[in-house]
Design a protein around this nucleic acid. Structure first.
Lengths: 225, 225
DNA sequence: TCGCGGTTGTGAGCCGGACCACGGCTAGGA
DNA sequence: TCCTAGCCGTGGTCCGGCTCACAACCGCGA
């Protein structure tokens, strides 16, 4: 396993080298191609995954087939922890949006790890707490903001995590289709497209396939609030 | 502190008597009257609270003053844990919906407790995981369901936690005004009122002030999905 | 007893955004 | 090289739900 990437994960950042190496040793590696599904909502399974390369989407679908994305996860981020501590089927489907690889850890291995190392438990708790805070923020956005506002916020979040600053703006290769972006903000593809077109016509950003270049972070942030 | 109520809290249910008594000993007690605020969104503070009596609402408000309720908490339920593990200001305002009392535990006391007792850490993790799962469900409902559907779901949840079954139906003294119910499901007071009136006219429930009697759980559940 | 603030019931009008229907564009496979 | 499948851009229509407006009601304190 690639220790450097593991160390990016908030969960492991506080571990000393020996501990990180030992934990890395008990992890298995998985690889996926764009579009491949790692597991489906409703599946059983108790593995925890950490993205080492690429991006995945966590999604759920309604009874009539519509989709909603809970999150996009990139290198260093962790998912699947719900099934570890709140037993039950997987609550979301995980699909690769780019070719991607992961380290995985089983329930048993992790629990063995937890008992001796209170700082790992502390790390997991703060990880979950921060996820919960974010999820509550998403709820507030759905209630308070309109679609353009939510699109702006999503772009800023993606820029924060995946953006590279250049002299013509922040390049964000989010790797999402507008359809996926729409599912992420809980809106229709058409409405999201119109919001993006509007932002572009104001000169706040430039659209590229599966990618945007943000030219005016300031105004975009204001629109997000 | 009242040990019996503490034992209802999932967090403490697995503790033996000695441990529960010891933890109870380090807790302080707080009481509030209906309408009183325990703390505001944005306040600093690192206390964890457990409701021993009554109900509270956790809410956040938008910049333009509108409100949104994240949850209603009753006896045995815990809140304020976010500030424990994800340092930062309180993310919601907590207000008493009925006269209420709480036990509280400080950050330091809890951490002292955590180190020696892996099963408490396990309990906290599963508590947070379950909260996260619920929060994700709320997001899905906001995206997929219409207002009557969300109202039905909220009533069923309240019935599950606070309802008493009698021969004329399940009596749910939720203690919420229709305004508060509306904030809980992310809709306007008027729309919620119309949804309730519609359910009542179909004979699924009977409306009473700050309370409902559910007469047809079956159909209400179907409407919720 | 009489207001009076907070709550509940209900109608009218308007608007954001979903849904539908295209047409153009691009990339990848035969 | 063309053909096809997925994307992307953009109009038109319609409807759920928000806002506004007002009336009835209930309990409570002066």
């Amino acid at each position: 396993m690639d220790n450097d990437v593991l160390r990016q994960a908030p969960l492991f950042s506080s571990l000393d080298d020996e501990a990180a190496t030992a934990l890395g040793g008990s992890m298995a590696e998985t690889k996926l191609r764009r579009g491949d599904v790692l597991f489906h909502e409703g599946d059983s399974g108790d593995k925890l995954y950490i993205v080492t390369e690429g991006k995945v989407k966590l999604g759920r679908s309604s009874s009539d087939g519509r989709e909603n994305l809970l999150a996009i996860m990139g290198p260093g981020q962790m998912f699947g922890e719900l099934s570890l501590f709140d037993p039950g089927p997987r609550s979301a489907t995980v699909t690769a949006v780019t070719d991607a690889s992961f380290g995985s850890l089983s329930h048993d291995d992790l629990l063995r790890w937890l008992d001796g190392r209170p700082q790992v438990a502390r790390g997991l708790l703060s990880q979950l707490a921060s996820r919960l805070r974010k999820s509550n923020d998403v709820v507030a956005d759905l209630v308070f903001s309109d679609v353009p506002g939510r699109v702006a916020k999503a772009l800023l979040d993606l820029a924060d995590r995946f953006g590279r600053t250049a002299d013509d703006g922040v390049h964000v290769h989010h790797d999402l289709t507008q359809e996926e972006l729409a599912q992420l903000v809980g809106a229709s593809r058409e409405t999201v497209n119109k919001a993006l077109a509007d932002f572009a016509s104001r000169g706040w950003l430039r659209l590229e396939p599966r990618s945007v270049v943000i030219m005016d972070l300031e105004r975009l942030s204001r629109r997000a609030r």
